[in-house]
Amino acid sequence: MYATHRNATSAYRDNAVATASPARLLVMLVERLVLDVERGLAAQRSGEWPEAHRHLLHAQDIVLELEHSLDVDKMPAGKQLASLYEFLRNRLVLANVRRDPRLTTESLTLSRQLCDTWREAAMAAAVS
Rank of each mutant, 00 (worst) to 15 (best):
M75A: 13
T4S: 09
L41M: 07
V97M: 06
Q60T: 15
E67P: 01
D71W: 14
L57P: 04
P76C: 15
E65W: 12
V97I: 03
T9S: 14
S83T: 14
T109P: 06
L41G: 10
D73M: 12
R45Q: 13
R119T: 01
M123P: 01
F87P: 08
L92Q: 11
S107A: 03
E31Q: 15
H53R: 04
H55S: 11
V93N: 12
C115R: 02
I62Q: 01
E86I: 07
A3H: 03
R32H: 12
P101W: 06
A42W: 09
G78D: 00
L81K: 08
P50N: 02
E86W: 06
E120P: 03
T19N: 03
D36M: 14
R91L: 09
L84M: 00
D36T: 05
L114G: 01
D61S: 05
L110Y: 08
V17C: 03
V17L: 07
L57T: 02
L56W: 02
D61L: 14
A20D: 07
M75R: 13
A11M: 09
L114V: 09
G47H: 10
Q80F: 14
R89P: 04
G78N: 10
A43W: 06
V34Y: 08
P76L: 15
P76H: 15
M75G: 13
A52V: 03
T109D: 15
L81H: 00
V72F: 10
R45D: 08
P50Y: 07
L33F: 00
W49P: 11
I62Y: 04
L70T: 05
R24M: 02
H55G: 11
P101F: 07
R112I: 09
L64I: 15
W49H: 14
S83H: 15
I62K: 00
P22Y: 04
Y85H: 05
I62S: 07
L29F: 01
A126W: 00
T109K: 04
V127S: 08
S83N: 15
R6L: 07
E51L: 10
E86Q: 11
L26V: 03
N15M: 03
N7H: 14
A11I: 14
L88C: 02
E86K: 04
L56Q: 07
T109E: 05
L81C: 05
M75S: 13
L66G: 06
L84D: 08
A43M: 11
M123R: 09
E38I: 12
V63A: 06
L66F: 11
M28E: 04
A82S: 02
L64R: 12
S128N: 10
V127W: 15
R45C: 11
V97S: 05
D61T: 07
W49R: 13
L103I: 08
R32I: 05
E86T: 03
V17H: 01
T19G: 11
Q80S: 15
L64C: 13
S46F: 14
G78H: 07
L56M: 10
P101C: 12
V27H: 00
D100S: 08
K74N: 01
H5Q: 02
F87I: 01
L110R: 00
H55V: 09
